[in-house]
């Protein structure tokens, strides 16, 4: 050993590489992030489906409390005639609900909205919103009742909470994971996205239920197709398809089923009462 101070002592070169794994960090990164994404997707969809499965088991009182907390509904700014009309709608809905075997704790609450849209929708907590232009396009009480009964049927089958629960659960999951984000904001966004998105099956069941209710209430289902006919004939591109029909292109079968239930020798449909008629013209107070 030339450069050593003593025969017995030396520092031969050691293989330093053994201490560092020869692995590309990029490959590692790709594998890890792919795994992470898969994990997030799996957990999210798991939570989503568990929430949808569990949602109908939530007691209705809790659903109402939840609905009141996340979307307070106030009837302020309504004129006297609108208040009367809303009460008439509420009375009609309650009569229909009597024929629909709702659970005893279920309460239907109708809200009239001055928005110019031919629409009605059911949402969390048994709330049903009826929009002004809907009344412009129905002439009989039976047609209005069909729409209301359809929405009541959604509430009976807990469709709004099933459809909202997946979104709410994933929003809660993400806001608890990513602490920095505003949970309330996410919740709102999730509700906005999932509100009133019902499946074709849910809509068909609601139609059947509504027809049965009309049959029981009026003794026939004549006039039930009025609003549907209006929607089907409305072809102008700017026409807005109401939310309760917009989930899918309206299957012709749906309207056909309604037609099929109507017997031609049934009595004439009942015209709209004056209280309901004035909702067309009366303005916000």
């Amino acid at each position: 050993m030339n450069d050593s101070f003593d025969r017995g002592y030396a520092n031969p070169p050691v293989p330093h590489e053994v201490n560092v794994s020869e692995k590309s960090p990029l490959l590692d990164f790709l594998r890890l992030s792919l795994g992470l994404i898969l994990l997030v997707v799996a957990v999210t969809s798991g939570v989503f489906f568990i929430a949808r499965w569990y949602a109908p088991k939530i007691p209705f009182q809790q659903e109402m409390a939840l609905a009141d907390r996340i979307m307070p509904i106030g009837g302020e700014g309504m004129s006297e005639c609108q208040r009367e009309g809303e009460a008439a709608l509420q009375a009609l809905a309650e009569q229909l609900a009597k024929n629909m075997d709702l659970l005893p704790e279920m309460r239907i609450r109708i809200h009239f909205s001055g928005a110019s849209e031919a629409n009605a929708y059911a949402t969390l907590g048994g709330h049903i919103f009826v929009m002004k232009d809907l009344l412009e396009h129905v002439d009989s009480e039976n047609a209005l009742a069909m729409v209301l009964a359809h929405e009541i049927a959604h509430i009976k089958h807990r469709d709004p909470i099933v459809s909202a629960s997946g979104g709410i659960a994933t929003a809660l999951l993400f806001s608890s994971l990513i602490g920095g984000l505003d949970g309330g904001m996410l919740l709102g966004a999730a509700l906005g996205m999932t509100q009133m998105r019902f499946s074709r099956d849910q809509e068909a069941v609601a139609d059947r239920e509504a027809l049965a209710a009309l049959q029981r209430h009026y003794g026939h289902t004549r006039g039930a197709d009025e609003f549907f006919n209006y929607i089907m004939t409305k072809n102008s591109p700017e026409a807005k398809i109401p939310a309760f029909l917009s989930t899918h292109p309206i299957p012709p079968g749906r309207v056909a089923a309604i037609h099929a239930s109507q017997s031609p020798d049934a009595p004439e449909p009942k015209p709209l009462s004056d209280t309901l008629l004035q909702l067309r013209t009366c303005h916000t107070g």
Partner: peptide
Amino acid sequence: FRQVIAGLKQIVGGRLVSYE
């Protein structure tokens, strides 16, 4: 970059090559 990988790797465990 290597800190992020190490952070991800700490979830699943295993060798933290970046720190090595």
